[in-house]
Simulated scan of single mutants.
Amino acid sequence: MSHGWVGMSKTGARKGSRGMARAVAVAMTCGCIAGLSGCTFLIPSRAEVAPKEVLVRVTTPAVSTEGVLAVALDDANAPLGMNDAKGDLTGYLTDVAYALGQRLGVSVEFVTDETPSDMASSSDADLYIGAASDSDADKVTVVGSVLHDAPALFAKGAASAPIDSSVLAGATVGVQSSSAAQDILTACGVDAEQKTFSNANELFEALDAGEVDYVACDSAIGGYLSRAYPDISFAGALDEPDSFGIALRSTNDDLQEKITEVLDELQADGTLDAVYRSWFGGLPVDLSDMLLDGITTSAERKQQEEQRRAQEEAQDEDQGADDTDSNGSATLEDPAVDSEAEAL
């Protein structure tokens, strides 16, 4: 009996201690709520906060203005660059530019009335973000890759991208009228019924409502819009992707080196991927291996067309040679006939 009493006493003591502690905590909380005079929140003064050390990694003349990276981009290419409802510049490429500037230790200012080729002349910008990697502009070098873009297919439900093009036989694919995606879909040999819409927003509304089985559109636009539809997913690319990077003056070796270095860092530590995901959701970053099985690409069709033309030219040359031989043999016989006629 005594052991049982001790046990109860200890148990009661533990419960009492917990109850007292809880009561004290509640009382203190109530006291803080009732009047902040009983609780002190220590907020360090501005003087007590050590300023964050910023490492400036690029200076003039690599950049035109000390402490500023002037970035040119297309502000009419949503969702890469656009103006929001307040008129402020926003978009995936603007966020990438801000990440570059932060890592370089400089602020970012945007220039929106220039093209990649303008970088070769008296441009107001230090670089152009979103330039095609195969840009052949004189005196301009494109470094890195910040985006893959291609005509793409999106489906309702989970799609194991890339899907096989054979599943599109008899399916209805929504396309924007007179769009590049519509042209590609027609050219690549996909046997599907097309239903046209006036814009990309209508495409995804129709796909979500079940009016079409798939939609074909630009991959970046599709990835951006599909974030609002949990059941819509990327199904594959309809053509080889284009790669877009950063264009700089070919003579600006210092800035080229710094931008390449920083881009590598942003990719390695996941910063670039985080920015990408915030704009394009589950769209794959690298679309190189996302081509739908069983379709022909633009490059393949171009090669086939060149081969066809070469064959036609060869046939024309052979036909011309045959005609020459035929005409030549007739010409050789005519003098003999004329000589015999003269002898008679």
Rank of each mutant, 00 (worst) to 15 (best):
A152I: 06
S178W: 05
F154Y: 09
S123C: 00
D124Q: 12
D164Q: 09
G4M: 13
G91W: 07
V146P: 03
L344G: 13
E205A: 14
K156D: 13
K195D: 07
N327E: 14
M8T: 12
R249E: 11
V190M: 10
T172N: 11
A181P: 06
V337N: 09
A268S: 15
E300H: 00
E261V: 02
A120M: 09
L185S: 04
F110A: 05
G105P: 02
L203E: 13
D208F: 04
S250E: 13
D138Q: 14
G19T: 10
D113N: 15
L69Q: 01
E312W: 01
V111K: 07
E211N: 11
E257W: 04
A70E: 04
V24F: 08
T296K: 15
S2M: 14
N327D: 15
D239L: 07
Y98G: 09
A343G: 09
K52Y: 11
K139Y: 11
A85Y: 11
G130E: 05
E305K: 15
A97G: 03
T141V: 05
T324A: 14
T297Y: 10
I295E: 09
A150F: 05
V275G: 00
E114F: 09
R301F: 10
D138M: 12
A171F: 00
Q311S: 08
S133Y: 04
L100I: 01
D322M: 11
A216G: 07
D136H: 11
D254M: 07
S117K: 13
A76I: 10
P151T: 07
G157P: 04
S178M: 09
G236E: 06
A150H: 12
A310S: 08
K156C: 05
V215G: 05
D74F: 05
V63N: 02
D95G: 02
A158D: 13
G174H: 04
L80P: 00
V275W: 01
E305D: 11
E261P: 03
Y98K: 14
S122N: 13
